[in-house]
Computed example of a mutant assay.
Amino acid sequence: MPVDRIRGAAGAFAVGALTVHLASTVLQNTPDSYNQDLRTFTGGWPIPGWRFFAPNPGVQNVHLLIREAPAGGGAPTPWRDVTPGVRHGWKQVLWNPGSRGPKALFDAMQQLSVMSANQADFGWVTQSLPYRLVFSASRAAAARDSSALQFLLMNVFPSAPPDQRMKPILTSEWIPLGSPAGAGKSIA
């Protein structure tokens, strides 16, 4: 019965390796982990480092607002929220390919928030890929007869007192719609 012993040993080794891997993963992902050196004890075996929402959970929503300049001149339109809505339902837990576009836009808006918070040069920001992506989303929501548009990123803190719920992050220059995104040309 050496074959049964080999199978038993292989099974025991697999269960042991899985147990060590799961225990290492739990230890690696404890809050304020001082276990960052666990990799030195695992012989190069990768340990997942999941942080999910901790230690900095999201406490604000980022909204995209636009206003357009009419083609014939005149006053700009009022600001309007064009943030894409994300459907939430039981089917989206299993299959939700429609979330990729809004997620990409959200990530771009978050990146612009980080640039703004770090006081990046506005000329550099307008040449960035996140700026171009947000402009493209804004352009898609603009009226066809607009000659230019301006977008605004706004942080909304739902749990804040009413007078402190909104904080502007970044306001673009007026962008002529006949030019490429981020050209930096202003019509004002």
Rank of each mutant, 00 (worst) to 15 (best):
L22F: 06
N56T: 10
L64M: 00
N96D: 14
K103D: 12
I47W: 04
V114A: 12
V26E: 07
N96Y: 12
K91S: 13
Q111E: 14
R80G: 00
P46M: 04
T42K: 03
W95Q: 05
V20D: 09
A69K: 15
A75K: 15
W50R: 10
A108S: 06
P31N: 00
A69S: 13
H21S: 10
P84F: 05
D107Y: 12
V62H: 05
F41Q: 11
I47T: 05
T30G: 07
L27Q: 00
W90R: 14
I47E: 01
W79Q: 03
W90T: 12
P31W: 02
H21W: 09
L38V: 03
R51F: 09
T83N: 00
A75E: 15
D37S: 13
R67C: 02
T25G: 02
V93M: 11
D37E: 14
Q111W: 11
G89S: 03
W90F: 14
E68L: 03
Q110M: 14
R67L: 00
R100V: 13
M115Y: 11
Q111P: 05
W50F: 10
V82H: 03
L94V: 09
S24A: 06
Y34N: 09
R67P: 03
L38F: 01
T83M: 00
L65Y: 15
V93I: 12
N96Q: 07
N96C: 06
T42Y: 06
N56E: 09
D37K: 12
A54V: 03
S24V: 04
P84M: 08
L94G: 05
W95D: 05
L64Y: 02
Q111F: 09
L18C: 11
P55G: 01
M115Q: 09
A71T: 09
M115S: 07
F106H: 15
P78N: 01
T25L: 08
A108F: 04
P48A: 08
G74K: 04
S33M: 04
Q36I: 08
T40V: 12
F106K: 15
Q36A: 13
D32C: 10
T77W: 00
F41S: 10
R67E: 03
V93D: 07
M115R: 06
P84R: 05
H88K: 15
P102V: 06
V93P: 06
V93C: 10
V59A: 15
T19C: 10
A75T: 12
H63P: 07
Y34A: 12
V62Y: 03
N96F: 04
A54E: 15
G58Y: 13
P55S: 04
